[in-house]
Structures are given as structure tokens and as C-alpha cells.
Design a protein around this nucleic acid. Sequence first.
DNA 1: ACCGTGATGTTCT
DNA 2: GAACATCACGGTG
Length: 205
Amino acid sequence: MEHWQDGRLPREFYRRDALTVAREALGKVLVHETPQAVLRGKIVETEAYLGERDPAAHSFRGRSPRTEVQYGDGGFAYLYLIYGRYYCLNLVVNREDVPEVVLIRALEPLSGLEDMRQRRNVRRDRDLCNGPGKLCDAMALDQRHYGMDLCGDTLYLTEGEPVSPQDIAASKRINIDYAGEAKEYEWRFFLRDNEYVSGWKKPGR
DNA sequence: ACCGTGATGTTCT
DNA sequence: GAACATCACGGTG
């Protein structure tokens, strides 16, 4: 069988648990094809949300109109509005009726940067996509993309440069103080030393 | 550099 | 009516 064209990731990539996909997604390339530009960014930071057994997850309290897409098959987009202003992009993962997601928290911009700069009024390209709300602005993602098939022609992931396990660091997830004991779990993953991770600071000398 | 705060609207109780 | 998987900005040092 021939390889997936352009290295586009197949649905099987998403049909695994969120902790696995959150790690595996690092280094992959998020692509959004718009009429204006092909927007591309390398995934450098993710978080796993483990559904009905995870107090931090939106699906912890079960099904609702907002979480509905999480209950379908893996490989679809879950977007939600946060603080009335920003969208956040998640990959729906695992199987039908297992509502797990992977939040995309930061990208290293690769192409379409001129288009991104127009939507994001920032001085440095480092600030284009280094946060979940920022990257949705830069990548032109919003409620219209809720439920979009990530195995289609508009919004998808492709293979990128290989990432080795020692390039990956883990930490607690960000801004989930409401989640009790679960806030201690190290379910955030990022590329060590990558300057496009949210909150990145120059290493001390 | 770090810290505190206001914006803003959907979702859920 | 409260909470919210955020961001930008203005203050201080």
C-alpha cells in the first residue's frame, strides 16, 4: 500500500489513549489550508485530558452539547471558547464513547507567517503561536472548525522531523486549579528547549 | 524581569 | 450567577 500522501496522519494515529497521542503529537505538523494561505506549524506543546476519570476534563461530567464530539471516533477537532474571547484546539482521540482529547498548546510557525502576523499583532514571531488561544488566532481556527474531520483536506496533521524521547519533557497541566488532585498529574508535554513553548524563558547562564 | 487585573460570552448549576 | 484548559497590558523594581 502506498504511503499517505504528504505524510498525512491516518485515523489510527488518533485511535489511542490521550497520554500516548499527546506525546506522539510533538513534532508533528498542524496544517490548515485556507483560501488565503496554507498555514503550518510544528506542535511543540500538548496536554492530555482523560475524560470521565479526569476532573480537569470537560467531559468529566459526561455528555453535553459542547462535549458531544468527544464521544465520537478519534481524529476530529474539538474547539471551545474560553473566557469569552479565545478558542482552543483539541484533537479528539481514542475510540467512540471514550471522550479523551489532546489540547494543542503551542506551535512553532512554519509557513503562512505573513498571514498569521496580520491576525496577530505581535512584535516577535515567537509570540505568534505560543499559547492555545494565540495559535487558534494565528491559524484562523474558531467555532466553524468544531467537529471537523482531521483526516480531510482542510485541517490535518502531517509527519515532521522525528522526535526522540529525551527531547520530551513533562509537567503539570496549566490553569486547572479547580481539578483537585488531578492538577498534580504531569500530563503536559513539550519539546525541551524549544523557544515556541508557552511561557518559554531564556535559560540562565 | 515579575505580578495583578480586566475583558468578554458561552456553558453549566 | 459563577466559573472558565487565556491573553495583553500596565504597574513596579
